[in-house]
């Protein structure tokens, strides 16, 4: 039975190194000006600053899928890098018309609409792009689809956890309790 691929962020552990952003850009060939994962910093420069990598969260009931008028966005069952059947939310860029309705429907602001693309990429101007768990690169290719969530695999502090929700939930809970204990040991000082 297919399981859901998700992201969980241990925000206390994220150091804003940008590894998730960089590996995503590199592996999915995402052009300048578009980011499938963005690192949002809260209280920047003040004690208590926190960083959160935000991307498509691959919702179980995706509002973007319900909003899409051309059925370009859909939940698909694909193989992950271990050969398991997993459910991810993908976008078929050939069907997308760039109406922007999914951008309104998504509570995380994940859909991106690239502009200023030149050369071979000009075809994808204004067409929605988002995280697909590394299943579909920026320029869609034919072939075997494999979910990888490389941002999670390459996260230097394991703040970004991506994969089978059943597996990453235990890692998340452990990391969360450790970070909370460390926080308490420091007497509430971050």
């Amino acid at each position: 039975m297919a399981t859901y691929y998700k992201f969980l962020n241990v925000i206390e552990k994220c150091i804003n190194c940008g590894a998730c952003f960089a590996i995503c850009k590199d592996q999915n060939k995402v052009p300048h000006g578009t980011a499938r994962v963005q690192i949002v910093t809260i209280n920047e420069g003040v004690p208590g600053e926190k960083n959160i990598p935000v991307s498509c969260m691959h919702c179980t009931n995706p509002p973007c899928e319900a909003a899409c008028p051309t059925k370009a966005i859909e939940q698909r069952t694909v193989k992950d890098w271990q050969g398991k059947d997993v459910v991810v939310v993908t976008v078929d860029k050939h069907k997308c018309i760039g109406c922007g309705y999914c951008g309104w429907a998504c509570p995380f602001g994940a859909p991106q609409y690239p502009h200023g693309l030149e050369g071979d990429l000009a075809e994808w101007e204004g067409i929605m792009d988002k995280c697909t768990m590394c299943v579909v690169p920026f320029v869609p290719t034919e072939g075997d689809l494999q979910a990888k969530a490389r941002c999670g695999l390459f996260c230097s502090t394991k703040a970004r956890l991506g994969g089978d929700i059943a597996e990453i939930m235990s890692q998340y809970t452990e990391a969360k309790s450790r970070s909370t204990m460390a926080y308490q040991e420091r007497g509430g000082v971050l």
Binding site: Q38, V40, I42, G109, P111
Partner: peptide, 14 residues
């Protein structure tokens, strides 16, 4: 303002 555009204040959400 769609919810997705409130990202800079996502700490509140979390």
């Amino acid at each position: 303002v769609p919810l997705g555009h409130v990202l800079p204040d996502i700490g509140g959400f979390y």
